[in-house]
Design a protein around this nucleic acid. Structure first.
Length: 490
RNA sequence: CGGGGCGUAGCGUAGUCCGGUCCAUCGCGCCUGCUUUGGGAGCAGGAGGUCGCAAGUUCGAAUCUUGCCGCCCCGACCA
């Protein structure tokens, strides 16, 4: 009855329905923004906690910088401002008043700000303004800071989780004494992201670097992880940038080295956002609802009781509560849904929609046999096991679901990387099959733009450790030294 | 910014072409009661509405006219 619109019919509609019905988020009153509901936020919190620990384990500390950035800060790094100028929310006034005709509220023209404030689209400028005061000596380096925050980008077209006007993210901003150390940092964080996305979200990614066209505004090199969605479109899941000395020079951040000489610091920045939730939804879910990877699922196991008589109800609750305690002791996030106003069938469908990895059913018949029914969300496979089954069974089963999700997504990703040796072949693959197209490229921005014009596909990345292979560019017929990955992207 | 679609109860909708029989249809949800409970329960009763906003045409507007606002999709755009 509540089955979702099929993916084949309309992928966008399927995706939007999934978000609304599963209780992750609501549409908000503000264009392109969204309300993240408790269930969606619990998911984000789990992701955030894992990432935060990874950052701390690699020597980073958290800090917080202001939401508002004076407009003048943006004029300091030319390519950076060019990249963001078209999508900024600007604060121009600070007061409202009742309108003259008494019919509402208007902005008080008297309250105009002398200098406008920009709602941060990213924090590079205000952070580097601050770093100037924090860094004097080589002893102050490296400076390894991360910030959890919200940012605003006034994109022309928005998409739930993937491109919202306001979104939550973390942004790391580091300063180093040498170029080598900064590059190492940028690469290290890329690997941290890949580790997280693959081992906690069960989503295989391709690590690589961006072509100059697709680079972050102000970066020398942009490293990225690219994921593939079920409709064959690619999604940038995270980026890490080597910024060179661009921001240090723009904000005059220098340090005295051991030889008592002034040098500009070397910088990196890196970030992932709530967009990852969108990636998760699009990569794993089916027409019954979400399928959440066990390691970050807000609820890993849900227990649904089934009973007719009051007397049996008490016995089932007793068994269920004992099981809850047993599982919680192993830090399994378990929920016993003993609501009496919803029927079992309703609960089954509900938790499938919400993507809970494992569902346990304990009924009167089961209790008599000292057993319970366990059903996994990914394969729908059901099985009866003894009530006193060891906790290891459950932890293994959760791990198994993770492995299965990853393997399935990995197989799809591999099957969706197709080599092409001509533009026609490339177009055909993009139209009929989708996914990544591995093709020779002459390395010029012009060619990349032309290919984008003709095929709507962009270079998603040049994979790390990409094998060199002599060939001919699919567009210009010029010599090429390697294949790169093209795809249509979100 | 261009093209398309939409705005009626918490959600989803019928009615709009061709004004009256609409103090507005149906489903989900909600409230009360009883029966139910192993895959989104059944019956009975009930609550809930500035028909996006404003002005106009008319004896009469959800329906026609004008203006405005908002949302969604596609495109352009997008670390």
């Amino acid at each position: 009855m509540n089955k979702l619109t099929t993916r084949a019919a309309d992928y966008s509609q399927w995706y939007n329905e999934l978000i609304l019905k599963s209780g992750l988020a609501d549409q908000s009153a503000v264009r392109g923004c969204m309300v993240i509901k408790p269930y969606g936020f619990a998911l984000w919190e789990n992701m955030r906690n894992v990432l935060d620990k990874m950052f701390k384990d690699t020597g980073h500390e958290n800090a917080y910088f202001p939401l508002f950035i004076p407009k003048s800060f943006f004029s300091k790094e030319a390519s950076h401002v060019q990249g963001f100028a078209k999508e900024c929310a600007v604060v121009t006034h600070y007061r409202l008043k009742n309108s003259e005709d008494g019919k509402g509220i208007v902005v008080d023209p008297e309250s105009k700000l002398e200098e406008e404030l920009i709602v941060r689209p990213t924090s590079e400028t205000i952070i580097w303004h601050t770093y100037k005061n924090w860094i004097q000596s080589y002893r102050d380096l490296p400076l390894l800071i991360n910030q959890w925050a919200n940012v605003v980008r006034w994109e022309m077209r928005t998409r739930a989780f993937l491109r919202t006007s306001e979104f939550l993210w973390q942004e790391g901003h580091t300063a180093h004494a040498t170029k080598e150390e900064a590059i190492e940092e940028a690469e290290k964080m890329l690997h941290v992201y890949a580790d997280f996305v693959e081992n906690f979200m069960a989503l295989p990614v391709i690590k690589g670097v961006k072509s100059p066209n697709e680079r972050f505004a102000g970066a020398i090199e942009t490293y990225c992880i690219e994921a593939l969605m079920q409709d064959g479109k690619a999604l940038q899941a995270g980026t890490s940038h080597f910024l060179g000395q661009n921001f240090a020079k723009a904000f005059d951040v220098q340090f005295l080295n051991k030889d008592n000489k002034k040098e500009f610091v070397w910088a990196t920045s890196w970030g992932v956002s709530t967009r990852l939730i969108g990636a998760l939804i699009m990569a794993h879910s089916d027409d019954e609802g979400l399928i959440l990877p066990p390691k970050i699922a807000p609820v890993q196991i849900v227990i649904v009781p089934i009973y007719k008589s009051e007397e049996k109800k008490a016995l089932i609750k007793e068994a269920a509560n004992a099981l809850v305690k047993k599982l919680q002791k192993e830090n399994i996030r378990v929920k016993f849904d003993d609501r009496e106003n919803e029927r079992p069938g309703w609960k089954f469908a509900e938790y499938e929609l919400k993507g809970v990895p494992l569902r346990i059913t304990i009924g009167e018949k089961d209790l008599e046999k000292n057993q319970l029914e366990i059903c996994r969300r990914d394969t729908k496979e059901k099985q009866f096991i003894a009530l006193d089954t060891d906790v290891d069974f459950y932890t293994n089963r959760l791990q198994n679901i993770h492995d299965n999700l990853f393997a399935k997504a990995k197989a799809f990703q591999q099957q969706q990387i197709t080599p092409a040796n001509s533009l026609e072949e490339m177009q055909q693959i993009l139209e009929q099959k989708g996914g990544f197209v591995s093709a020779h490229w002459d390395g010029t921005a012009l060619t990349e733009e032309k290919i984008k014009e003709l095929t709507k596909a962009t270079i998603r990345c040049i994979p790390l450790n990409n094998p060199l292979e002599k060939g001919i560019c699919v567009y210009s017929q010029q010599e090429s030294s390697q294949r790169v990955l093209f795809a249509r992207a979100y």
